[in-house]
Design a protein around this nucleic acid. Sequence first.
DNA 1: ATAATACCTTCGTGTTACACGAAGGCAAGA
DNA 2: TCTTGCCTTCGTGTAACACGAAGGTATTAT
Lengths: 148, 148
Amino acid sequence: MYTVKEVARITGLTEHAVRFYTDKGLVPSVQRNQNNFRMFDEESINWLHGIKCLKQSGMPVDVIKTYIDLCIEGDSTIPQRYTLMMEHKEDALAKLEEAKLHVAHLEEKTALYQDILENRSPDTTNPAHWDRIQHMHGDVFYSRSATR
Amino acid sequence: MYTVKEVARITGLTEHAVRFYTDKGLVPSVQRNQNNFRMFDEESINWLHGIKCLKQSGMPVDVIKTYIDLCIEGDSTIPQRYTLMMEHKEDALAKLEEAKLHVAHLEEKTALYQDILENRSPDTTNPAHWDRIQHMHGDVFYSRSATR
DNA sequence: ATAATACCTTCGTGTTACACGAAGGCAAGA
DNA sequence: TCTTGCCTTCGTGTAACACGAAGGTATTAT
């Protein structure tokens, strides 16, 4: 039997997180002793490892809760778990695309700043640069600051 | 001069977001009329477009606030803005890597579920499958549900 | 004149996943 | 006995709004 501090060390979670997951009902096998202390056995630790693993895939806690409840129900829920996991994968892919867009945006912004700093600001009369200029017009923070 | 509703339509932001940004001080040129209504001019709308653009790069609001304050200070702050943008780009790249990891995790999980559903669960005695099995052992939610 | 409408305002709460500190209980060692 | 070290619950703060409540104001219709 382990205390909060011990499972925190074992699982690599913080004590706060361990209490949080416990109170959310994500750790089915956790119990209390006479002093109302949370007591964890090996099974609890397995669950916590699993929770950590799912968190690493970006799954929100309430979905993890749903997933765990399905696990407890038994093998009959495997198709539902698969569906849930596929849906979550779609979410993750959408976020990945978003992150790519963010980086692409920032590549352009930083490139424009480099041009200014090295006195190589793009030639607005040269059509070869128009797509960068289009971007500038959409980006108030570049054109305003550079022209004022 | 535009009302909240109008700029919301023009910028594509929600009315809530417009009020939120205004109250956070992100829109320097916004003013109030006799009825204490927020009144926006073309310049306000430009700022809001710029805010939207920065949001699309995933920049948090307090950083946008810092950035705008630097813009108002003038061209002398261009190097600081560049630094800020570069730091934000590093954040965005870190998040991109994280998103890739999430997707990779989920590719494996969903693949394992497909194996179960099609009665093709990996052969635990074949060393060729050991890296998948290692992953299974790390994933309580797979091994527990599949073995119980 | 009055009532309906269409705006606007400022609260205040809920969301996610904890972090952090406060105030207090319990058991063991110096 | 007092300190140490563990635990408990409770309450606040974070980010970026969403949403609703309660109320003010201006225009329009009857």
